[in-house]
Amino acid sequence: MTDIPKTAETAEDATVLMSRIAGHQDRQAFEVLFAHFAPRVKAYMLKLGTADALADELAQETLLMVWRKAEQFDRAKASPSTWIFTIARNLRIDAFRKISRPELDPNDPALVPDPEEAQDDRMNRLQRARAVREAMKTLNDEQAEAVRLSFFEDLSHSAIAERLDLPLGTVKSRLRLAFARIRDAIGEDLK
């Protein structure tokens, strides 16, 4: 049996832990993953204004979902932190809405499939996550702030505009430029 990583600090170790959980229902691997991610998911919930007890509960739910859906992770085309982020985000939204967040179903027969070449050329998901991290450093302060407000303050474009006392168009163009810069940097020709 291979050694279980002691932490989930690197995406590579977190990926190993995920595959241990998916393949072997490995509780020890889960404990390591929990120790790293649950306190960060809780911090995310708190940042978005969730009360402490609920933030704790939603972080628990998120990690429980990680356990239950571990075998879906491989197909998620994402690094572990990205995948866990999307689970946390959806659980938070669903906790406050009566109808669950609209998400595509990757198994839907009506889904238009990815082109074959895109699947082959697709950047390794860990490489892509690293490239995104590097690209984020190249954003100017205004772009970085608009992105941060989107992810951590749960603000719509118009709410960001109000917060920063800017025209709506300015906020949109900052977000658009930030996103374009990141996508350029990872060398994707998306459209």
Partner: peptide, 22 residues
């Protein structure tokens, strides 16, 4: 594809948050 990249931003920001004890 674009959404996968945008979600990576979320994953990165989650990773960078100061942990809060459970």
């Amino acid at each position: 594809e674009a959404i996968d990249v945008a979600s990576d931003i979320g994953g990165m920001m989650l990773e960078d948050l100061a942990p809060v004890a459970m």
